[in-house]
Design a protein around this nucleic acid. Structure first.
Lengths: 249, 249
DNA sequence: CCAAAAGTGTTAGACCTACACCCATGA
DNA sequence: TCATGGGTGTAGGTCTAACACTTTTGG
């Protein structure tokens, strides 16, 4: 059984070393069926999609990844499931952001959506291998396509939540590969906060936290001085996640 | 029409000058009817309440103020409406906190609840004048009664959101009367943060923000030196609400 | 004149900001 | 040897934390 008035949408952020991206899809009927446990579940809500002109295949509208919530699924668990199916990732940073519930946010039917945001590192997953490959695509956060419903509001809300979070919690690290350079970390912060940071001060502040561990490795095959690779100290990472930190550089 | 799978619950915080309190109710059928536009709406969901043993009048369980969401009500608007009916207050600080959606959070039926929290100043409203007077009561935040469902989790989540918010946004002021003393403000912060603060440092920090305006009035009828009364500067207040502030005293 | 809470300043250390040059690497 | 980005230190100003006594008021 499907809860017809309730959907879950995920704003999936990814960082490619230069830009902040969001993962969007064009949800065709056969894809939606993958999300639901039984064919009957899909039949139940099919009319919502068929009635909706913005979901015609001919259209160039994109949407957040998500579907209606099945009766027997916990809310948080289902958000996680959506992410697993879409990206193949299991241990992902995923948090509820906000519930959008204006009466007219979706035409023809009352649907509230509970928005989550996720931070993933695209390097860990080759999207081309996913069964959803044809319909899923990364978009730069400031070059978004036309979006369904109020999805632009949802993305903006998730982005401002990310910006708030990143100031006091070490969330940004979820977007990086296991080993990363200080410059990559700085670029990540600059992209999220939308501002340039001073390199020397940034490094001082980060290193003082003792959050980073020098792996003793370096970049290879770069046409300039190779940068040290760091990883982060899980103990200190977890402590800072609990206690918060002040990262208003 | 009522959305049977969706309810809205409000965690209403009040400050009496000494303690932080939460407003709870014992929702009897005749009271619930007041919240719904038509009698038919109540009939639709009556069975949910009748089936629920925790809602027998004989019981000493209390719950958060809230009901199921009607189809034609915007989510935010309805949370505001609940608050209006309960407290008579109109211009109230009200924010969405979190949506609780575990499958078994309510027995017999799947109900997700969207939790809001509100900050009000009880001095502005005599609860005894409300038609809900018999069923509504303030409880100290650390002397809560037995609570329905997962309402204790909801209160805890709202409280930790309040604690986070208060560090970087001037939300605490909503809990104070128009004119207040610096000691009252300090007590409020101490109660919310659950910690003692240094009086001299607190005053320096607050006054440096230029957020407070000296009304040139003083307390009367106190058996000690009368304290100055302050109000706050709405322009600076609004700016700080936008930009955030650092109140980690 | 007593009890009770209001009100006030200084100092030492930590932290933040601004700023410019040399270093290592591959092509 | 050149182009490219990696890596480093200092000084001045601001903010924070710790700390104790005098003032005003009503009873």
């Amino acid at each position: 059984m499907i809860l017809k008035n309730i959907s879950v949408d995920c704003v999936i952020f990814g960082f490619d070393g230069e830009k902040l991206n969001v993962l969007l899809w064009q949800a065709e009927p056969e894809i939606l069926e993958n999300f639901l446990t039984t064919k009957e579940e899909y039949e139940e809500i099919k009319f919502l999609f068929e009635k909706n002109p913005a979901l015609n295949k001919s259209d160039d509208f994109w949407g957040l990844i998500g579907t209606h919530l099945p009766t027997e699924e916990d809310l948080d668990g289902y958000a996680k499931k959506i992410l697993q199916i879409t990206t193949g990732l299991d241990e992902v940073y995923l948090t509820q952001v906000h519930t959008f519930g204006a009466t007219k946010r979706v035409p023809h039917y009352r649907v509230l959506t509970i928005a989550y945001y996720a931070l993933i590192n695209p390097a860990y997953h080759d999207m081309k291998l996913s069964p959803l490959a044809k319909s899923v695509k990364w978009f730069e956060i400031n070059k978004l396509p036309k979006l369904l419903f109020d999805h632009i509001d949802i993305i903006n809300e998730a982005l401002s939540t990310l910006r708030e979070q990143v100031k006091y919690h070490p969330v940004g690290f979820h977007l990086l590969p296991d080993k990363f350079t200080l410059t990559e970390l700085q670029t990540l912060y600059e992209v999220i906060l939308g501002d340039k940071l001073d390199t020397r001060n940034f490094r001082k502040k980060i290193l003082k936290m003792r959050l980073l561990v020098d792996t003793m490795e370096k970049q290879t095959n770069v046409a300039h001085r190779a940068a040290k690779l760091y990883t982060f100290d899980m103990k200190i990472y977890n402590r800072l996640t609990q206690e918060g930190l002040n990262f208003s550089i």
